[in-house]
């Protein structure tokens, strides 16, 4: 009997991102779903989390009573814990770490992504450049991290696809995305193609293709997510 369709929630998407991190990586987690990733990393992974505000080596989100008003992640509002060996630098030094190329992967939220690895996450209109938007550290990260993972809903609230042949919104970077985790699927981005690697419970490749605005190649290893 077919499994009931069950899109991934934000925590499950964060858990999938955490599964895709290698031993000892230096990882930057952006605002939104990615900041939850710190709760799903295992000690064995020995990941070093870096945040734009200069915190190097933070851990899971702080529990009640553990919050320190001066220790936050990229959201600037979520309190996090520090792991033994953590260090604090100022904002310019924090972006040294990024531009020098020390970040193994940056996990970011996004509105749109295309098979060439370009993505859009700083502006919600197609108005010509008018100095309005919310870039944060995304462009610095996207230009210099070794890989970019995106976490996003598969479609807009109006049901429009977010995985497109070409981004219609202004891009954050013209290339660099290697993995997209959505509420319906895990999609690798390689050689100018979207490769459908995993599906949320109950979703077939046809179901996912039907709500995707670009062609998906199906991985020989296509399988259900395990979270």
């Amino acid at each position: 009997m077919a499994e009931e369709k069950q899109p991934l929630n934000r925590e499950q998407m964060a858990a999938v991102l955490a599964q895709n991190m290698g031993y000892g990586w230096i990882v930057n987690l952006g605002i939104g779903i990615p900041t939850n990733v710190s709760n799903f990393l295992t000690p064995e992974q020995e990941i070093v989390l870096h945040s734009e505000n200069g915190v190097i080596g933070y851990g899971r989100l702080a529990g009640e009573g553990e919050e320190d008003p001066d220790i936050v992640n990229a959201s600037a509002t979520q309190s996090v814990t520090l792991n033994p060996g953590a260090a604090i630098v100022h904002h310019a030094d924090s972006f040294n770490v990024i531009r020098r190329g020390m970040i193994d992967v940056t996990c970011l939220g996004a509105y749109q992504v295309a098979p060439d690895g370009s993505f859009a996450n700083w502006k919600i209109t197609t108005e010509p450049w008018n100095n309005l938007g919310g870039i944060g550290g995304a462009m610095d990260l996207a230009s210099s991290a070794k890989q970019i993972y995106l976490a996003m809903d598969h479609q807009t609230r109006d049901g429009e696809p977010r995985l497109l042949e070409k981004c219609s919104l202004p891009v954050t970077a013209p290339s660099g995305v290697t993995l997209v985790v959505t509420n319906l699927a895990v999609v690798a981005v390689r050689n100018g193609k979207f490769i459908l690697e995993q599906h949320a419970p109950g979703y077939s490749a046809e179901d996912i293709q039907a709500v995707t605005g670009a062609r998906l190649e199906i991985s020989p290893d296509f399988r259900r997510v395990s979270v």
Partner: peptide, 9 residues
């Protein structure tokens, strides 16, 4: 509007 690392630098 400036990327954050560019702003810091």
């Amino acid at each position: 509007l400036v990327p954050q690392g560019t702003l810091a630098e």
